[in-house]
Design a protein around this nucleic acid. Structure first.
Length: 555
RNA sequence: UGGCCGAUGGUGUAAUGGUAGCACGACGGGUUCUGGCCCCGUUAGUCAAGGUUCGAAUCCUUGUCGGCCAGCCA
């Protein structure tokens, strides 16, 4: 179920096998190249699981490289968060690098291309550049500067670097083919002028290389054999290859796969940022966010995420995975790892009238399927709380819970039967009176009679009051990004994606450490929030248990 | 009406010229000290049309539909 599981032999795996067989490469070295301008989400987790996973599968290694070629957008704040999230997922990199480590080398490469007559300095304004580029259906026009002499290009490029020009005054472009059907090949920009401090190189540079002129060469410098990326870079592969060929440097192979999309959420960095900045959520690590830090706070485990990614697979098909699959995977993981505890979320008092004054203690196994994990003592007293929804006055025949005259098992403890319903002046049920069968202590009876229903409960006097945040899907529609005309994607945010209730937990919960995940029996999985302030514990609901009853009842 | 890529049940995928399988979901049943887990069953698919072949999801052609590309973003 974990790392021992056979690896997915997807098309990239097969491609690598092929490369090893033909001798194109002798080893497998990959890289994960995030831009440090946001937090990692589960889509990134798919990407880096492929990067690290393929390296691992073939006995190679993977580098972590910050793609920091644009000082406008990047921030060191994100770098530590990115490292933390990758480590959390259980991966480690061989080398930690920055694209900015290669600025000197890249500058040298640019000069080589100029000298070969394959790059030129252009002073076309951005609007002109757009005009000259042509359109999808029409070829572009060559810039009047395209045939500058090598000497002049060299001089201008040096002066660009020396800071003689304003932002945008000049760019360095590759000289390829203005009529190329792939627009990326129509003399793409290699360097632009930005008088801006860089988080690592400070003010050493006022020209910065573009993605296209950085990525492949960075891969090459690091000896990356397989540069795995998402589908939108397919169109850039010819350019990636062109630079490697013209520069005559080590030539990695770029292979593209489709990104992960999930129903009921959004995955674009821009939209996630909007949710955070416009306070639709409490932050990047809000448990409703698909960010790794959000999912961590929500109670998703690395193993659950890996299980999920494994089921999603790796293809070139643009797909949207049902979030129900992710939810299934967390349940699958937590089912066998999360200790059971009883917590009543919507309390209704029950007085067991024939119960002694003394507290009785029963054993509740932490993990009923694995007794070796031990048990805890559960206190039963004369007054207890049960879930309000577990009582019904006019109950249908199939309602296997509390109702007057119906015997029900208190989990781990004994059998009780409600015989009186107490209401307030408004007719609201405020308390139940019940009796227990002394013979049923231990949750079974000598006569072996069956009780169909078992409910969870908590002592009314020996419990721990806790706060519980019940999270649900962030959006009410499957595809929040597919907005109709006149609608805004923000309109479909689920107003009920968070609800907070005060609950009573059994005493054993008091020992829980932050980040501990429990199954609140019959309800769902909950994690003790890191930010738990004061003495009252706060739990976040990871996911509800499947509920066959409410499904049936609602039909 | 440019280029590149893609298309298998509702969803995500497997089958690499030889019985279309798995998982999720949905539905029905069994079991049960969690209406959970587990077990059993049902549902439902090769985008279309031609061609190659003894045989095509797979190869070829054409078409249809979908994605990406006209940042001095990545």
């Amino acid at each position: 179920m974990s790392e021992e599981e056979a690896i997915n032999k997807h098309f990239i795996y097969e491609a690598i096998v092929g490369d090893l067989e033909t001798g194109r490469f002798k080893e497998v070295i990959t890289r994960f190249p995030p831009e440090p301008n946001g937090y990692l989400h589960i889509g990134h987790a798919k990407a880096f699981s492929i990067d690290f996973g393929m390296a691992q599968a073939f006995g190679g290694y993977c580098n972590l490289r910050m793609d920091d070629t644009n000082p406008e957008k990047e921030d060191t704040e994100y770098i530590e968060a990115i490292k933390k999230d990758i480590h959390w997922m259980g991966y480690d990199w061989k080398n930690f690098c920055y694209a900015s480590d290669y600025f000197d080398t890249l500058y040298g490469y640019a000069i080589q291309l100029i000298e070969k007559g394959l790059a030129y300095v252009d002073d076309l304004k951005p609007e002109q550049m757009r005009e000259f580029r042509g359109t999808l259906t029409n070829p572009g026009k060559e810039s009047p500067n395209r045939n500058r002499s090598v000497e002049e290009n060299l001089d201008l490029f040096h002066r660009m670097k020396a800071g003689e020009f304003e932002d945008g005054a000049y760019v360095l472009r590759a000289k390829i083919d203005m009529a190329h059907p792939n627009l990326n090949m129509r003399d793409p920009v290699m360097y632009r002028i930005k008088h801006m401090e860089h988080h690592r190189t400070g003010n050493a540079w006022c020209i910065y290389p573009s993605y296209d002129f950085t990525h492949g060469q960075s891969d090459s410098i690091e000896g990356i054999t397989h540069s795995l990326c998402s589908l939108e870079f397919e169109d850039h592969r010819p350019l990636y290859n062109w630079f490697c060929e013209q520069l005559e440097i080590f030539h990695p192979r770029q292979i593209e796969f489709s990104r992960l999309n999930l129903t009921y959420t959004v995955m674009s960095k821009r939209k996630l940022r909007t949710l955070v900045e416009e306070n639709y959520v409490a932050g990047w690590d809000d448990p409703r966010m698909p960010t790794l830090c959000g999912m961590r706070r929500r109670g998703y485990t690395p193993n659950a995420i890996k299980l999920f990614l494994d089921k999603v697979g790796v293809t070139k098909f643009n797909s949207t995975t049902d979030i129900a699959l992710l939810e299934h995977c967390v349940r699958q993981d937590l089912e066998v790892t999360a200790y059971r505890r009883m917590v009543v979320l919507d309390p209704l008092k029950v007085v067991i009238t024939n119960f002694p004054e003394e507290t009785e203690f029963y054993e509740g196994e932490n993990l009923p399927s694995s007794p070796e994990y031990g048990s805890r003592k559960v206190a039963l007293t004369r007054e207890i709380y049960v879930e309000r929804e577990d009582f019904m006055e006019d109950a249908p025949k199939k309602f296997f819970r509390l109702s007057v005259g119906r015997e029900v098992r208190l989990r781990y403890a004994c059998y009780i039967t409600v015989n009186e319903v107490i209401k307030d002046d408004l007719g609201n049920i405020v308390e139940l009176r019940a009796t227990f069968d002394p013979e049923s202590r231990g949750a079974s009876t000598p006569d072996g009679r069956k009780v169909k229903g078992t409910i969870h409960w908590v002592s009314a006097s020996q419990n721990v009051p806790v706060e519980v945040r019940i999270y649900d899907r962030l959006f009410t529609v499957e595809s929040p990004e597919a907005v109709e005309d006149g609608q805004d994607w923000l309109d479909s945010i689920n107003p009920e994606s968070i609800a907070q209730v005060s609950a009573f937990a059994e005493a054993a919960i008091a020992d829980a450490e932050k980040g501990a995940i429990f199954q609140f029996e019959r309800k769902g999985y909950y994690i003790l929030d890191d930010s738990t302030e004061g003495q009252k514990m706060v739990f976040n609901r990871t996911v509800a248990l499947k509920d066959g009853w409410s499904k049936k009842a609602s039909q």
